[in-house]
Design a protein around this nucleic acid. Structure first.
Lengths: 232, 232
DNA sequence: CTCCCCCTGTGGCGCGCTTCACAGGCGGCG
DNA sequence: CGCCGCCTGTGAAGCGCGCCACAGGGGGAG
């Protein structure tokens, strides 16, 4: 636990979309127990199979949620930014973590333990209902991912992923289009859509030649969002 | 609504794993509003995109939860049997249904409406927590499905599906192995694992020739579960 | 009974994507 | 500084599986 004032922690907690609707007293009840924790870029936060019983709210940085395969492949299930939470599942049911969590950048997280969180949850139906919303949203996303992988081709999935990245993490419209500034390697992009680095590269090159996107020192600029939309 | 006594409805509700932990008074509160509804085999219960705001508990029969693609393909996301619930997502967040629900056999369902359920939920944290468990379980399942589709070959997914079907819906050990008696066509099996009817047929034939399974008038008998386990 | 639809069963071709192989660039670290 | 590990970029080969084609069977509707 780092030496951070209660007031500062409360401010951080307020940023979290999930927890923002707590009253002051409840927020303080949680905060008394919440740990503030930092991770360096690339650090592992937890691994699939761990017996974790906590959930995290991101206050700074970006976290990758992914699942590894036996042969060393990996799917990225989600990318979590400031104000969002992850790891709720293990907190709620007390079982193993279902995926890896890795700090993509330097991160600052508020960590809430199951044993502290559950009592608060029982006394606060609104919080409980809100958590249900979060899980529903996740479930919608994940089902959609199943459908996408089974029904759509790589091209379509990639187009969709770019649009989503631009919407969720993009810097606003710069010269000539929306810019995705997450420094995602093509390999990571592949893991995000369920394809190989090579396939991603070829598709991006083709789109660049067609003037649909531009590749600019690791960032991707969407020049023709409509074209991507049409393919997705 | 069918003319069924309160006592009978309560008995049905008790079977539902989700709702079984309500006290009598709460159960009655819900039951006053719960509709009992029947569907013929093959009937559509709801469709993806519908503005449904209810959830169902299966008391008799079996329901297929699936998602259609534009080109007429379909993924089966789940098969719901007696004592289980489905459709919670739309009930909880009030948005569109994420999938189709179809009666695989003649069915009897208890239908709970959002406007009746939410108030009960707010007054009963235990129920709320239990619902969170259900959603967590779903989320684990669905994530696993994503991983399976991306990492495993059809053979492996099919082996896994057969084992799961045997465990969840199988009639106990009959002569020479566990028997899967759901009358699933090979096409439906294909939809369950994300493959075509033809591929499923070829794989099943190969396994039958190897003595791993037996096909017996539409049912599948698992003769060598260990072999399947090894492939899955 | 006949027709029709959906089922199982099986072979072959083709496409999408992975895998492999190789080349060159850039940043960090001893 | 040079090495090493990561990155991007690109062509060629291979494979899993979808798609097509065709054949025969059984059950429900007329």
């Amino acid at each position: 636990m780092l030496g951070v004032s209660l007031a500062e922690k409360r401010k951080l907690l307020r940023q979290s979309l999930l927890l923002s609707r707590l009253g002051d007293s409840e927020a303080d009840a949680l905060l008394a127990y919440a740990r503030l924790q930092r991770y360096a870029a690339g650090a592992a936060i937890f691994a699939k199979g761990d017996a974790g019983a906590s959930m995290m709210a991101v206050t700074k940085g970006r976290v990758r949620i992914s699942a590894p395969s036996l042969e060393g492949k990996e799917v990225v299930l989600n990318i979590i930014g400031p104000g969002e939470v992850f790891g709720e599942i293990a907190l709620l049911d007390g079982k193993e973590r279902t995926a890896d969590a890795t700090a993509m950048t330097a991160c600052e997280l508020l960590v809430l333990e199951r044993r502290h969180f559950l009592p608060v949850l029982e006394r606060h139906p609104e919080l409980c209902l809100h958590l249900l919303q979060v899980l529903c949203e996740r479930l919608r996303r994940t089902s959609e991912q199943v459908e996408d992988v089974l029904f759509r081709h790589l091209q379509s999935r990639l187009a969709k992923a770019l649009l989503r990245l631009a919407a969720d993490h993009g810097a606003g419209a710069s010269a000539g289009g929306r810019r995705i500034d997450l420094k995602l390697s093509q390999r990571e992009l592949g893991n995000l859509v369920g394809g190989t680095r090579e396939s991603i590269n070829k598709q991006l090159q083709a789109w660049q030649r067609a003037g649909i996107i531009a590749l600019d020192k690791g960032a991707i600029v969407i020049r023709d969002g409509d074209a991507l939309e049409a393919m997705s």
